[in-house]
């Protein structure tokens, strides 16, 4: 039997998530994007249950003819900046709107990495996806709800830029071959010189190195696991509403990377972080007066 998966189906996922026929590709309100710019990134405007959203997704079925290392959903130089532009234009559009009324940004995540090429390093690939991360962080702080939906691959630095700056992160269950990791367990085994069986055993107790959405769930890096693709739309809509509510009530520390840190503690996957923070704060309070 063929395994069910959404890997490589970023465009299908858009159709499953947004209202029928509402997706306008390449358009953030009246700002039109050059269709040849960064084809590995799909951006546009749609509605979900009647509310306008910006959609940013990966298209794993195309390659960027200008950059040979960009295919299969890889985020290249152009893709990173295109995604950042989509965020900036979204903010621009809703500048006058109050928190609670600013449109949501929905990230549909299926990306195996950042462009690993020579020109990329000469020009500075780190800036491209770094720019996208800063744009998302700014939009989140301005009041736009940002929901990431992992439908396929969310790998390392590519997940860092396309996903981890969201308010809320959802993932399809691993039944759908969803992959979230920095490195597969085989690579961890090579580095640690421990065999896979031992690592799998250890990962039951400690989610920090193993690959898969359920481990990120325990660490607070995934808010919710979604069991079937059909449930994505309702769940995203619900999270958008919840995030709006939290932002209106100034409870932003429950959202985004900081909120995910707290969630990791609650779910007992990341317990060291809070000890570091508390001890640093107390040592800081002891000495800070001499620096003021």
């Amino acid at each position: 039997m063929e395994m069910e998966t959404m890997i490589g189906r970023g465009r299908d996922a858009i159709e499953m998530i947004v209202d029928v026929d509402s997706f306008q590709e390449g358009l953030i309100d009246d700002k039109e994007f050059d269709p040849e710019l960064g084809p590995g990134a799909v951006i546009g405007t749609a509605s979900i249950k009647g509310s306008t959203v910006t959609v940013i997704a990966n298209d794993a079925m195309v390659m960027n003819p200008k950059f040979r290392v960009v295919y299969s959903g890889i985020i290249g130089l152009e893709e990173g900046y295109k995604m950042a532009l989509a965020v900036y234009h979204t903010m621009e559009k809703d500048r006058q709107k109050a928190v609670g009324e600013k449109r949501a940004i929905v990230l549909i995540v299926d990306t195996p990495g950042n462009g690993p090429g020579k020109v990329e390093e000469i020009v500075g690939m780190n800036k491209s996806t770094g720019a996208y991360q800063l744009a998302l962080a700014e939009a989140r702080k301005e009041g736009h709800p940002i929901i990431a939906m992992v439908i396929g691959r969310a790998i390392s630095g590519a997940f860092l830029c396309h996903g981890l700056q969201a308010d809320r992160i959802l993932s399809l269950s691993s039944k759908y071959q969803t992959m979230i990791h920095v490195m597969p367990l085989t690579s961890i085994a090579r580095i640690t010189k421990l065999d896979i069986e031992r690592l799998e055993e250890l990962s039951k107790e400690n989610p920090v190195f193993a690959a898969g959405p359920e481990f990120f769930y325990k660490l607070g890096g995934v808010d919710e696991i979604i069991n079937t693709p059909e449930e994505m739309k309702a769940s995203i809509d619900q999270h958008i509403n919840e995030v709006h509510e939290l932002k209106i009530n100034n409870q932003c520390d429950q959202l985004g990377p900081w909120g995910h840190g707290n969630l990791g503690l609650e779910r007992e996957g990341r317990k060291a972080r809070i000890h570091v923070i508390e001890k640093m704060e107390s040592e800081y309070l002891e000495v800070i007066d001499q620096f003021l």
Binding site: M183, I188, I191, P207, G220, P257
Partner: peptide, 9 residues
Amino acid sequence: LHEANAGLL
């Protein structure tokens, strides 16, 4: 890489 998920977060 030994604690890659936490490092990424």
